[in-house]
Design a protein around this nucleic acid. Structure first.
Length: 678
DNA sequence: TCGTTCCTGCCAATTCGA
DNA sequence: TCGAATTGGCAGGAACGA
């Protein structure tokens, strides 16, 4: 029976080769499906890799879109973490950055990095040792299966290692030797237009304390009360403190890594008691919609919510599903719809921030009749055990059942277009909608119909994103303006009037153009740098108004006294205070002269700061002055090196424009430059 | 209080694509 | 060529900081 022997073979190098290959792909931007914005740097990566390595990303990507922004970590640190994720190595990081690295690793739920700060005494089963500085890998005993639970310790290279102090297991190794690290600043030159800023996931600061308390198993009353919610919701910005999320994510590290056993209770990252395991709840809390109040402590709500979720989770789920996933997975039909919606809206781009916020509200699905799904919402409101149905989302497939929505003509239209309609029974859920959703308010009693676009839907003139991957070679100076799909809003229709809601800060706009303009504040997809100093603005108008202060041009002239002012505000103030008149009245009390110094229209062009800058004096003579870095910014007092005329300035736009790679910050973003237009 | 910046509806000019 | 989309300016109020 020799031929029937079972033969097993293991490619021990496979994992390394695979990781290396992935890292190379990252370096070339191949198959990268997510952009992580940290400070002003963009990191392209693979969602699967990040989610597998980071509990934070694991949770985040279940709801987030193609672009996420991290505000709690510095780009330099994140680059190191990303390098580790793609190489399993931390290469010669500066000692002064170690603490920050560890902290960021904890926040991001990168276990290895997070565990770097755990004293060896707190780890269990740590028989390994490391040799000074340049670490080495010591193989744990063959029978030791929980090597992953061991805690690495980094010590100064100069420090002698004593027995039992540093711990290196087979699950990781520390290399003090110089390593040819590939600090990949992922090029976004080829996909800059592919980037869709779907969300800005910034956990609320007020949740930090709660999370830390939870992580430390300190059942102190949560300070996150109404005031906290105010801070969350005020300003309309659902910023969520990353620390919060990270802490919570960190606490669920083990659950997110099936191949990893639960670290020891003493482990810093795993310090969160198991009973809290708030990988769902605690994560969702910072993602909570700002419209929801979270006055009560987290723990108060953790337990019931977890129970509810567990009851409804599929056995196959690893328990790390976000509430959004849970919501979506509850019902096959609904799941399918949601998936379709998401994928169709923009491939790989879940209407993130809205969903993220939606995720803040854990939901429990219960099947209700055929074709209709009712989901109970468990919130963090003052009443953790809300009345059944108090926060209820009734999801119905209008094609198969519940035709209530058909009563709306608009809804009917959407139905005819193959769209799905979801009826919310509470306004608080509106904030958790996917982008592109249309919300019809005042339909029925206190209900809101949401029409979610499905495949092929192109509403409101939203241009479809060019899904074809573009290579960097596609960027040419003559490239056309790319039409992008904007997952930046959903629509609220009240009494027939459409309001466009920013998915990030929930601001409402009557004009979609206003929202588009506003959204750049979040995305910074376009930058408007001042041509006289280093300031950069998200809106062209901001820059223009700012530059007026450099040029000193006074365009507003009081018709009463003839005095000139640089802006409307000063002019109006002058008219009110000096002439005791209302500048906003029907009578025109001031005159606005044409702008002489900034008549060239530009579209989000980044200027070449290295070039000299013309400044126009009162007589219209233009001087070139320094960029301001040398202290000569924006004043005509600077001796003119060369006088040019208006004809020299007003170069016809078009062919002179070039794309220039921005060398700063390692960014490979190609920016539009008109070198000599100013 | 004042100056500056931010915000947003509205509008016109420009650009793009069918 | 024309309609749609994009872009930026303007008005006027609000917020913020010195």
């Amino acid at each position: 029976m020799e031929g029937k022997n079972l033969i097993s073979a293991t490619d021990t190098q496979y994992s390394n080769v695979l990781l290396q290959s992935l890292n190379e792909q990252r370096g070339h931007g191949l198959f990268c499906d997510v952009t992580v914005i940290v400070e002003d740097r963009k990191f392209r990566a693979h969602r699967n890799i990040l989610s597998a390595s980071s509990t934070y990303f694991h949770q985040l990507f279940s709801v987030a879109g193609q672009v996420v922004e991290l505000s709690f970590v510095r780009a330099e640190i994140f680059a190191e973490i990303l390098n580790y994720i793609y190489s399993s190595k931390i290469i010669s990081i500066r000692s002064d950055l170690l603490d920050e690295l560890i902290k960021s690793g904890q926040q991001l739920g990168v276990k290895f990095i997070a565990d770097l700060g755990v004293p060896p005494s707190e780890g269990k089963n740590m028989p390994s040792k490391v040799k000074d500085g340049a670490s080495e890998t010591s193989t744990s005993s063959p029978g030791q299966k929980d090597a992953e639970t061991q805690v690495p310790v980094i010590r100064p290279e100069s420090q002698e290692v004593t027995d039992g102090m540093p711990v290196i297991t087979q699950s990781f190794s520390l290399h003090g030797i110089e390593y040819e690290t590939t600090k990949i600043t992922v090029s976004d030159s080829d996909d800059d237009d592919d980037v869709i800023f779907c969300s800005e996931i910034v956990p609320p600061k007020e949740c930090i304390k709660d999370l830390k308390a939870a992580a430390q198993n300190q059942p102190s009353p949560s300070p996150a009360g109404v005031s906290d919610q105010k801070s969350c919701g005020s300003g309309g910005s659902p910023h969520l403190t990353s620390t919060t999320t990270a802490q919570k994510l960190t606490s669920s590290t083990s659950q997110l890594s099936p191949n990893q056993t639960q670290p020891s209770a003493e482990s810093l990252v795993s310090a969160t008691p198991q009973h809290l395991t708030p990988n769902i709840i605690v994560l969702n809390k910072p993602l909570l919609n700002t419209s929801l109040s979270a006055s009560s402590s987290h723990q108060t709500h953790v337990t019931p919510t977890i129970n509810l979720l567990e009851e409804n989770q599929q056995p196959s789920n690893n328990g790390s599903l976000t509430e959004v996933e849970t919501t979506a997975v509850d019902d096959e039909e609904v799941v399918e719809d949601d998936v379709d919606i998401i994928s169709s809206s923009s491939p790989g781009s879940v209407s993130s921030s809205s969903l993220v916020q939606q995720s803040s509200v854990p939901k429990v699905a219960t099947t209700e009749g055929s074709g209709v799904q009712k989901k109970q919402v468990v919130t963090f409101s003052q009443e953790p055990f809300a009345k059944p149905g108090e926060f209820k989302i009734k999801i119905s497939d209008v094609l198969t059942g519940n035709n209530k929505e058909l009563s709306s003509g608009l809804a009917s239209k959407q139905v005819a277009e193959g769209q799905k309609i979801i009826t919310l029974d509470t306004a608080t859920e509106i904030g958790g909608l996917s982008t592109g959703c249309k919300v019809y308010a005042n339909i029925g009693e206190d209900t809101y119909d949401i029409v979610i676009p499905v495949k092929g839907d192109s509403e409101e003139g939203e241009a479809k994103l060019d899904e074809t991957p573009r290579t960097s070679g596609g960027d040419s100076p003559n490239r056309k303006r790319m039409k992008v799909k904007h997952d930046d809003h959903y629509e609220l229709i009240v009494d027939g009037r459409v309001y466009y809601i920013c998915i990030v800060c929930k601001r409402s706009y009557a004009c979609l153009t206003s929202l588009r303009r506003h959204f750049n504040v979040h995305s910074w997809e376009k930058k408007y740098p001042c041509r006289y100093c280093d300031k950069v603005f998200p809106l062209a108008e901001y820059r223009t108004k700012h530059e007026i202060h450099h040029t000193g041009e006074r365009r507003y002239q009081c018709l009463t006294c003839g005095k000139s002012f640089i802006n409307y505000q000063i002019t109006a103030s002058h008219i009110r205070s000096v002439h005791s008149q209302d500048p906003s009245g029907d009578t025109k009390l001031y005159r606005l002269h044409p702008c002489r110094s900034l008549q060239i229209r530009q579209y989000a062009y980044i200027t070449d700061h290295s070039s000299s800058i013309p400044v126009i004096n009162e007589g219209g003579i233009v001087y070139r002055v320094g960029t301001g870095k040398d202290g000569t910014e924006g004043t005509t007092s600077n001796p003119p090196a060369k006088q040019i005329t208006w004809d020299d300035i007003f170069i016809p736009q078009g062919n002179e424009a070039i794309f220039k790679q921005n060398p700063s910050e390692g960014s490979t973003e190609f920016e539009f430059v008109i070198p000599e237009s100013y």
